[in-house]
Nucleic acid binder design. Structure first.
Lengths: 104, 104
DNA sequence: CCGGTCGTTCACGCGCGGTTCACCAGCCGG
DNA sequence: CCGGCTGGTGAACCGCGCGTGAACGACCGG
């Protein structure tokens, strides 16, 4: 059976993700992401256009409370920027809101 | 997906398969595959561009549930890569999505 | 019987991903 | 201008997912 109904598509500009399929594409090209990277991208895309705090991102991807000195979110935002940016050089795909969080 | 006619042609890039005829070709050249190998290729091609989990591949080719320590899918993906790659050296025909599955 | 193919499983180890640390750059208030 | 805080980035470390070769038995045609 071909699943056409539950294939939710998240999109922000040239970035899109299919949560059910575990697949992300940038400018139409499939991008290979790890589990953490993919879930983080989904969490950001689910709130496209809004600023999402590190606490919220951590809760959505890792689960639980973000420890005060935990840099996991920053590290994975960086990894995402590298992988997504490879397809669209020179474009800011994930924006930093100093003191608040990130936004796609 | 409903019933497929027996003239069905599956294609992804330079890889194509005729499920009814049990025939596969890479870059126009016929490739000799065993039954398991062929069915696995068909299962992958039926969802070309998507990430297919090991569980789904196992259910489609072997039938039933994939045991937690069963490496059958991995082994046959490797065999497929060897046979298909012989015609197109240096090309990645089957992509690994770490922690998710495979994609053609 | 015997040799070859196919499917399954095992064993080894490489490389990837996840976590954390360390250092630097940039922003901000005093 | 300066010092503290926030974020960027590279890298070390380690566990495990995965790639890979091979052994083994079942099956089959000769």
């Amino acid at each position: 059976m071909e699943a056409t109904q539950d294939t939710e598509l998240l999109r922000a500009g040239e970035v899109e993700a299919f949560p059910a399929a575990g697949l992300a594409r940038v400018a139409g090209q499939p991008v290979v992401l790890s589990v953490r990277e993919f879930n983080l991208l989904v969490a950001l895309l689910r709130r496209a256009g809004q600023v999402v705090s590190r606490q919220e991102l951590y809760a959505a991807v890792w689960g639980g409370e973000l420890r005060r000195d935990d840099r996991s979110v920053d590290v994975y935002v960086h990894k995402l920027r590298v992988k997504l940016g490879a397809e669209l050089p020179g474009r800011h795909l994930i924006h930093t809101h100093f003191g608040f969080g990130y936004r796609v």
